[in-house]
Structures are given as structure tokens and as C-alpha cells.
């Protein structure tokens, strides 16, 4: 059974390769990475979408990272105990809030604000999308960060506590350095979520195919591109590019997961080393 789903994954990748094959056949594969998307002129460069995806993802990560680390530290250490529980439950709840609801609220709340005060124009921009995306990926990262901080061996915590470290000292000298591999994994997971999200960028980034010059301009991501083009004619070249997008996204995911695996093994090797000092109860 489990084998079956593994095969299914491979089948999916093959299917995309097959459907995207016309691109390679016509020698247009490398033309894919050109910067112009203009179906009328037979130019199907998806580079603007790749760049759009990257920009939104990186920006979202930049916005989300301080927020996530801050929340994780609060929830694990700095906040009073009852608030910690409340924070954790709320964060888990936020992970379950439908993406489309975030998008919907942002369209009618954030976009007008952006239009009025920050970027003018339509308000639909890479910046807008990445702000909302930052909120969307924060819970994933926070949950991972908290797990990482919690898995620091108790004996170290006792040692540091009994020497009179203040919470912030404990965090800087012990917890963050020790939890470093899981922090990194959390960031990678967040990256994956941001890259893979369709709705937010589709609803908020404006979807223009031109190569954006600044983050305040409209842009299109790979995921949004798939959603937008799917309505077109099945056999057109335009249509086949979305399989290239799909393929790029899949490969990206594979890379991320494999890197997480490698990091994880590195991390657990560290943990085995750490296990030399077993737990002690106060």
C-alpha cells in the first residue's frame, strides 16, 4: 500500500514530464527561462514567474522569521505560564485557518491600506502578498521552533538555571545554539509552504507577467501561473508551460525535503552525542 503511493508520486512526475514534453520537443525548453511571456509573440518565458515566486517567498520569510522566533521564545520561555499555553493553542489554531480566508480578508482590508498609504497604484503587489504569506507560514515555523527549543536536554537547562541565568541569557547562550538544527528545518519548511502557496499570491500579488522592478509592483508566481493558465486551451504551448512550472515546484520540494533529511540526521547525531548526560528531575 505504502509502496503504491510512492509509485503514484513517481507516476505524477512522469505524467508532468510527458505533458510538458512538447516544450522540449520543439526545442523551446531553454526558451522557457527567458524573461518575456507573450503568447501572441510565441514567447513563453516563465522566468518572471520564477523570480516572482522567489521574491515573494524570500520577502515572506524575512517578515515571518522575527515574528516566529519571537513567538516561539515567548511560548517556550519568556511569557508567564498560562499565556504560554494560550499562545501555543492559538498558534496551532492559526495553522488551521483556511488560506482563502486570509486572502479574502487581505483583499478587502490590507489592499486598500496599501493603496492609500504605502505603495499607491492598485495595492495588489508582491509586498502585499508577502506580508500575508508571512502570517500564513508563521504557525508552521513557530510550531517547529517550539519543538526544537523543547528538545534541548533538560539537564542543560537545569545547569544553566541553577547558575542563575536570566531567561534571555538562557535563550541566547543555551537554547538557540542547541536548537539550531531544528530552527533551520523550521525555516526550510516555512520556505516550502511559502513557495507552494497558491491562493495568497493569486489573490494579492496582482498576477502581471512583466518582470517586476520593485516589490511594490505586481507580480506572478509559478503557482498562480498554473491556476491562471489552466483555463486556456489544452493543447496550446501556453498550456504546456504550466507543467514546466509544476515540475520546477516539485523539484524544489524534493530539494527542500532532502535537505531537511540531511540536516535532521546531522541534528540527531548531535543529539546522540548530547544524550550522554541523561535527564535529572529537580
Amino acid at each position: 500500500m505504502a509502496m503504491g503511493s510512492g509509485l503514484l508520486l513517481i507516476a505524477i512526475l512522469c505524467m508532468m514530464a510527458v505533458l510538458g514534453w512538447p516544450l522540449v520537443e520543439n526545442g523551446r525548453f531553454f526558451a522557457l527561462f527567458s524573461t518575456t511571456w507573450s503568447p501572441h509573440a510565441q514567447a513563453y518565458g516563465i522566468l518572471p514567474m520564477i523570480l516572482g515566486s522567489l521574491r515573494i517567498t524570500v520577502l515572506a520569510l524575512l517578515f515571518s522569521l522575527p515574528m516566529s522566533i519571537g513567538t516561539a521564545c515567548l511560548a517556550e520561555l519568556l511569557a508567564p505560564r498560562p499565556l504560554r499555553r494560550l499562545l501555543l493553542v492559538t498558534i496551532r489554531f492559526m495553522a488551521g485557518v483556511p488560506t482563502v480566508v486570509y486572502g479574502f480578508v487581505a483583499v478587502f482590508l490590507l489592499v486598500p491600506l496599501m493603496r492609500e498609504y504605502l505603495i499607491f497604484g492598485s495595492g495588489f503587489s508582491i509586498l502585499t502578498a508577502s506580508l500575508v504569506l508571512a502570517v500564513l507560514i508563521a504557525p508552521t515555523m513557530i510550531i517547529f521552533f517550539v519543538n526544537g527549543l523543547q528538545s534541548v536536554p533538560r539537564s542543560y537547562c537545569h545547569a544553566v538555571d541553577s547558575l542563575g541565568a536570566r531567561p534571555m541569557q538562557k535563550l541566547i547562550y543555551l537554547l538557540l545554539p542547541q536548537a539550531y538544527p531544528s530552527l533551520l528545518i523550521g525555516v526550510i519548511l516555512g520556505l516550502g509552504r511559502a513557495m507552494g502557496d497558491t491562493l495568497i499570491s493569486l489573490m494579492l500579488a496582482g498576477n502581471s507577467v512583466a518582470l517586476p522592478e520593485s516589490v511594490a509592483e505586481s507580480g506572478r508566481t509559478l503557482t498562480a501561473h498554473i491556476a491562471l493558465v489552466i483555463a486556456a486551451d489544452f493543447s496550446s504551448m501556453e498550456f504546456t508551460t504550466i507543467f514546466a512550472c509544476g515540475l520546477i515546484l516539485s523539484l524544489f520540494t524534493v530539494c527542500l525535503i532532502v535537505s531537511i533529511r540531511l540536516l535532521d540526521r546531522f541534528g540527531t547525531r548531535g543529539a546522540q552525542h548530547r544524550e550522554m548526560s541523561t535527564e535529572s528531575r529537580p
Partner: peptide, 10 residues
């Protein structure tokens, strides 16, 4: 305070 199992930091 010194604990049951030695806990030097890594």
C-alpha cells in the same frame, strides 16, 4: 546546585 547526573554544558 549540583545534580544527580553530571551535567556539563556541551
Amino acid at each position: 546546585m549540583v545534580f544527580q547526573t553530571p551535567n556539563p554544558l556541551p
